[in-house]
Design a protein around this nucleic acid. Structure first.
Lengths: 337, 337
DNA sequence: CCTCGATGTTGAAACGTTTTAACGCCTGAG
DNA sequence: CTCAGGCGTTAAAACGTTTCAACATCGAGG
């Protein structure tokens, strides 16, 4: 291993003091051009790399923020992350991504680590409501795609109740009266909100609440959607829903697969609405009707909110975006047979 | 902001020296149980969080590795990342994910940052061959899904030539003699290798090399696949390929979308083979035949290789996995019309 | 009673930066 | 010639931890 060249080696090699080297690094304008060149040459020659730990220890700030993502395998979150990264980049900060994989333990570990690393700020889509009570330890935290219930921090979210309402209203308008909702676990706020929206849509249409069959899943992943599909088909035909609203697109894709596999047609035998409108939704077996969320914007706004945290007169804000329904083939008008 | 409680505050509060607190943190067995309890209580009470910068500065090691991923939006890489994370976790290391987004500039920036952070090691899927010449600065680097040409570092890859050969051999066996390959840019080694395999398959089957039409794309993303589909359909019918081999599944999904949109059927009008076998491949409009790579294992092995770097008698290794063809509906046997 | 080793604890010196106040030098004005 | 002021540079003091050698304390063995 290299003997680790430090700032003083550079200083010696350039015939200046280490303070000057530090100035070249941090305030290049304050040092005379000639000296600067000499120092830069020395840096180049010796292959000096600034030790960020030492810098941070002394200076206090880290120029790094982190986004603790709920599920890195879900394209929705990678899109949000892109928005975050763009904003971070514009502000001259680097972004570290951590994947909690919906595991409260991992989430806690990463938060602990990030606190220890003294990152400038943390964006997080928490695993569940309890974990949203993230121990405040001086590091600013902004909730992403979750609404902060108390006023202790900022949050950026999308109106999930409205999203659910849009989806189910659309299903009702295309002629369905027995509708399934697939999603879970109910510990996730999103799922609860989307269900609430779904129920509201039924009420608005004058349908009874039991027109909605709730199929709870253990997670929001493709495999669970397949499982739900099997459960759905297992229901007695008289009670079987003619449409399904899935709490996200991954579930919807799984459901779609399951339908095809069991020889049922979408939308004729079952109409399907997803949520998130990820890129793959349009490329699915049957292009998926889905509730679109402003993903990049969500991330971008969250990052901006985080950056505003250390402004002197900061006030915690809760930004809420509106979702939008994108209609595709999976919910073509029900034939009045 | 909190007045930042440090190790000496804890020490004072527990009535011991800071050295003892440090011992409780790092070598709990060496300190008497009673003292340990007292210190732990003080830590709890004061909400002390160890300052990792200071620790790292003094101790030298960081307990963190990083994976610089080529495209976080590509499920292939998130799966690889999952493997990396599992292995890192087993070794008690945390993983930071960085997304170069196929941008050489970003990649360089992140590498610089990671060097400055003095991470224990770096896994990277480099943007292109030149960037693979990653300046060695004392931090171990392992290439992921790329083969290191020189013996200066470890690498973990999959035999892409074989993968291309499998794919195109399959197409030839199902009766195709005019085949398109969609992929690019050619600066990516993978694309070149997969094409080479494709050509080898043709040779093996006694077909001329010009049986393969190469449609170069600017990236490996869905949108480019759609574009390629339009170009493909634009070809005069007599010369139009009857099958397409895509350099990855995203392209294949885009191609599929484009076909559906233009009223062509898969596999009847065009058979399609993808690459990677991401989860969405099976859920596509037409379930996609694809070349499967051992994704998690790729990541896991890479991380293990990285960890072995600082063993005393380490020798750089190049692990190469075998891909496997998964046949689905998108390449059903061509009808001998 | 003295010595020895084991066991727990500690004081102080690092680690590699940033930062602050002070310094020397030069120029131009008086 | 003196002096004020600006400019570029520097010595030295932090930052919060780990680590190492040294130091108490105690029980056991001589």
């Amino acid at each position: 291993m290299k003997p680790s060249v430090g700032i003083r080696d550079v200083a010696q090699h350039a015939g200046v003091s280490n303070a000057t080297v530090s100035n070249v690094l941090n305030r290049p304008d304050v040092v005379a051009p000639a000296t600067r060149q000499r120092v830069l040459a020395a840096i180049e020659e010796l292959g000096f790399v600034r030790n960020e730990s030492a810098r941070q220890l002394r200076a206090g700030s880290s120029r790094v923020i982190a986004y603790v993502v709920l599920d890195a395998a879900n394209p929705f979150f990678t899109d949000v992350a892109r928005g975050v990264e763009d904003a971070a980049r514009d502000a001259g900060l680097a972004l570290f991504l951590c994947n909690s994989a919906s595991d409260g333990g991992r989430e806690r570990e990463y938060l602990e680590l990030l606190h220890e690393q003294r990152v400038e700020g943390i964006l997080i889509t928490p695993v569940d409501a309890e974990s949203a009570q993230i121990a405040e330890r001086g590091t600013p935290v902004v909730l992403v795609d979750r609404e902060a219930t108390d006023g202790t921090r900022c949050s950026v979210a999308v109106d999930d109740v409205l999203g659910g309402e849009l989806a189910v209203t659309h299903l009702v308008e295309t002629g369905h009266t027995r509708i399934a909702m697939v999603g879970g676990p109910l510990s996730i706020q999103q799922v609860r909100d989307r269900r609430e929206g779904a129920l509201r849509a039924l009420t608005n249409a004058g349908l009874p609440a039991d027109a909605l069959t709730f199929l709870e899943t253990k997670s929001l992943q493709v495999a669970e959607g397949r499982g739900a599909g099997e459960r759905l088909v297992g229901l007695p035909a008289s009670r079987r829903p003619t449409a399904a609203f899935c709490a996200n697109d991954l579930l919807a894709l799984g459901l779609l697969q399951s339908m095809t596999q069991q020889g049922l047609r979408v939308p004729d035998d079952l109409a399907v609405v997803g949520y998130d409108d990820i890129e793959f939704a349009g490329a699915a077996a049957v292009p998926l009707t889905s509730v679109r969320q402003p993903r990049e914007q969500l991330g971008r706004t969250a990052a901006q909110l985080l950056l505003s945290e250390n402004e002197p007169d900061h006030e915690h804000r809760h930004v809420k975006f509106q979702p939008e329904l994108v209609v595709r083939a999976s919910t073509a008008l029900k034939r009045r047979s």
